[in-house]
Write a protein that binds this DNA or RNA. Structure first.
Lengths: 207, 207
DNA sequence: CCTACCGATCGGTAGG
DNA sequence: CCTACCGATCGGTAGG
């Protein structure tokens, strides 16, 4: 009859996002391999098998999370005006990076911790984007060395140094901490500009 | 009779070390939860169950590795003479930290990535040692701020900055890289001293 | 150090 | 979205 129940289930659009966010939180807290699909399902009030109406596999969850994080970092850095003087540009990059950490802490953490558990072809793609990200920083350091706003004897190492100090911040940055994002970014950038030998009397550097 | 085979097996002393080192390598490469006991066993030419003649559990492996790494970091920092002037002391701490990374890369990586998978009481103990480690750095930064060898407006943040730049180095430090440990540590310390506003004309700072 | 084995749990599928 | 279920694999034990 016309009132027969259809078994072709059409998932809501938002449900997938809910699953991805929950997976991100659990992967952040317990790690990818230590998180079971049933655990994710429980947290979104589903049976384990029902997840597969919304996603294809556990790996797809990780891929989505890591991919979005990589894209967010890269997009934020690309927002920074590349024609700014190197010190201002670095301030912008620091602010961008810390902003992503603050706003996307679970995804960023999963990105840093679990990307190596993806298959080799996806890893290669991620490494490419990481290199593109690093190139933005390296270009800034090198431009500053060239125009004299920075004093660096080893630009590749200085770039690694800058990125190291930023990358680790996901370990301690508290989105609800004592400092506003702007204040934190300003101080962090000031420390980095000091490391790069920028003139402390120039602009907002230390007096 | 007197020649009966005894089934009480007495493990060799070195075998345990071999298992621990292999586990460290595999945990580093694939992560703790993604590494199976049978995989470890295969790499030391044993049956999976035979591992338990040498160790008590998989968790004990992780505990040993993480514990040794934490102890190595702390011991290295404590080797640095606390009566040195703050800039020299920081140079020593940088050199100590990078030395541990270089010499104990697998264990250090597992420490940073997997310590959160240990039970809460062990986590607390590790956090205590991490705090002790950080306190050595904070003391150095504060001493330098007090005696004028550093210029820092926010000592807690500056300490986090120093530790962040060091902690991330396990991601890229190549024990067989282009720079010797001494050269690398010298340059890295020089960057950090610049961040802390140390007088560049003082000692081995930038001219 | 091995053989044999166990209960639990895993990611995922069939079918409706 | 659920019920029922599968093969594979997990960490670990018994017993010698």
């Amino acid at each position: 009859m016309s009132n027969e129940r259809s078994f072709a289930y059409t998932p809501r659009v938002t449900r997938r996002q809910e699953i991805l966010q929950t997976a991100g939180d659990l992967f952040q807290r317990n790690g990818y391999h230590a998180t079971s699909m049933r655990e994710i399902a429980r947290n979104v009030q589903l049976q384990g098998s029902s997840l597969y109406a919304h996603i294809q596999s556990k790996e797809e969850l990780l891929r989505n999370i890591v991919d979005e994080a990589a894209e967010t970092f890269l997009a934020a850095a690309r927002q920074v005006d590349g024609s700014l003087p190197p010190p201002e540009r670095l301030r912008g990059l620091v602010r961008a990076h810390l902003g992503v950490i603050r706003d996307r802490l679970p995804h960023a953490t999963v990105f840093f911790h679990e990307w190596a558990h993806l298959p080799p072809d996806l890893q290669r793609e991620l490494i490419e984007r990481r290199d593109a990200y690093q190139a933005i920083f390296r270009g800034t350091v090198e431009d500053g060395a060239r125009d004299g706003s920075f004093v660096v004897e080893d630009a590749p190492l200085a770039t690694l140094f800058v990125l190291s100090s930023l990358n680790w911040t996901y370990q301690w940055l508290d989105p609800y901490g004592r400092l506003s994002l702007d204040a934190l970014a300003e101080r962090y950038a000031s420390l980095l500009l000091g490391a790069l030998g920028a003139d402390p009397t120039d602009g907002r550097g230390r007096p």
